[in-house]
Amino acid sequence: MKILIIEDELDLSSAIRDYLTSEGYLCETAITYDAAYQKISLYSYDCILLDLMLPDGDGLKLLKHLKSLQKTEGVIIISARNALDDRITGLNLGADDYLMKPFHLSELNARIAAIIRRKNNQHSNIFTFNEIEVDLGAKTITVNRHEIHFTRKEYDLLLYFIYNKGKAISKSAAAEHLWGDDADMADSFDFIYTHIKNIRKKLSDAGAKDYFHSVYGLGYRFTDI
């Protein structure tokens, strides 16, 4: 799985690259418009992360160029501009998603995973993590052929952890995933604990192993190790 990171801030670019590399992706970076233009023209990727504000050009133009090449890469716009116009223009131009800076790397990873899965597995929307089977189309989760009833938030949260399996996820990242912009309304994310507790109970009732591990009281790691 190849990913192109078009981002002019080196520190941010490297953090993204490190995180995604550890997830098993092959990452390339471009820090200027020109470099990105060349890479897009020459190579193919599974997903492209696109910063709209580059020192030598507008990221939206790159998007247009990409679409003019009839390429099918998934594109996630990552921008500090939260302008509604940009978001709409970007999505209209064929971007698959729009992520507002600052974002959590786990969120970015989950979005990439969702896009790649959508692009590659046109026919099957089902993937598994050990005994847990997720049907993305029907939004259901089955363990040992027993469907478990999760609330929408619980489903979203579990999927988020599965996408980021092996990674420590802070409560605030989890809350932002569930609530988006509204997450900053909460002063504490203790309610995440309640959700996790419920998910754990439902999974273990269905006979699944407990994959949630608390990380320093900051968050959780979903892992089978």
Binding site: E9, D11, A15, F103, H104, L105, A168
Partner: peptide
Amino acid sequence: AIINSKLDTLL
């Protein structure tokens, strides 16, 4: 954004 991503890495 950089601080945030580095914190995620640190975690």
